[in-house]
């Protein structure tokens, strides 16, 4: 156990990591937010979606440090008397579920398509890459908004799929580029020469050597998916109203902004920013680690 830890301490990746204080902070922040989301039912002072627990007498209370604030509502309450801190914890669950699912599904689907496109080339490759160009030139926000808006249905699964439909493309492009250079390497040629099947060569030799840039794409994409879900829910075409979401909280709080109830927007907004900003910092650090050549965005 201890030797493992020491080994980790000696490793290059660890040393680089601690030399980047911003990345360390980002990792701590994202871990805390993630734990908060997972443990929401345990640590939230109130279940904001159990209507019988809400009291209208607690409606629109300011944060606890301001005049009129009241325990246990640390960050204040909304018009229905819901604790903002609790709604944020529950809302960030949606963010994390959507973000993780989008990254996983897009990563696997796009990764496999890009792997095959790069390895085999030819017509399949052209079709995949041309459709990738096309999807990329349109806005993900627009595509997801149209899909969800047209069919007038909302569920978390549909939101995830509406994002994935244009999102897999970047994974496919990234891994294809890697495969193009890896497939000329000698160990790949050797695997073919000793009679390895295509599938064996692809998954045993090409994939492990082409997969690491996907980590960088995944970290950026995680943040983008979280922002996109929030945007869709803000516009009213995202997750159903019965489901807490940071975007929806902000959209509801917007109605009370003129009344000066800033806490309804600022705290969910800060949470959203913290999630995306941490992920971007981590991906920036990962990019420097994995591919020092491309330090631009």
């Amino acid at each position: 156990m201890f030797s493992k830890i020491n080994e980790l301490r000696e490793s290059k990746i660890y040393k680089h990591f601690v030399s980047q204080p911003l990345a360390v902070v980002a990792l701590i922040v994202i871990t805390l937010l993630f734990l908060g989301a997972v443990l929401a039912p345990i640590i939230a002072p109130q279940d904001p979606y159990a209507m019988d627990k809400l009291s209208l007498g607690d409606s629109l209370l300011p944060p606890i440090w301001m005049e009129g604030g009241k325990a246990p509502f640390i960050l204040g309450t909304d018009v229905q008397g819901r604790d903002i801190f609790s709604t944020i914890l529950y809302g960030s669950r949606t963010s994390f579920i959507v973000g993780l699912s989008v990254v996983t599904i897009s990563g696997i689907f796009g990764g496999i398509i890009g792997l095959f496109a790069g390895y085999f080339g030819g017509i399949f490759d052209s079709i995949v890459m041309r459709s990738a160009d096309t999807v990329l030139s349109f806005s993900k926000t627009l595509i997801a908004m149209l899909l969800l808006g047209i069919f007038k249905q909302s569920s978390m699964l549909l939101v995830i799929l509406a994002i994935v439909i244009s999102d897999w493309v970047q994974y496919a492009r990234t891994i294809r580029g890697e495969v193009l250079s890896v497939k000329e390497e000698e160990y790949v040629l050797a695997s073919k020469a000793i009679g390895g099947t295509h599938l064996r060569t692809i998954f045993k030799h090409v994939l492990p050597n082409a997969v690491s840039p996907l980590l960088v794409v995944g970290a950026v994409d995680f943040g983008i998916a979280v922002m996109l879900e929030a945007t869709l829910s803000f516009l009213g075409v995202g997750v159903p109203v019965t489901q807490p979401s940071l975007g929806m909280l902000i959209s509801q709080g917007r109605n009370y902004l003129y009344a000066g109830k800033w806490w309804l927007i600022v705290f969910p907004g800060l949470t959203l920013m913290a999630i995306v900003f941490s992920l971007n910092l981590i991906s920036d650090w990962l990019r420097d680690e994995i591919d020092p050549k491309v330090s631009n965005f």
């Binding site: 929030a230 975007g247 959203l272 920013m273 900003f277 992920l279």
Partner: peptide, 8 residues
């Protein structure tokens, strides 16, 4: 700047 959603 790239971490801030437009609507926010």
């Amino acid at each position: 700047g790239v971490s801030l959603p437009t609507f926010l």
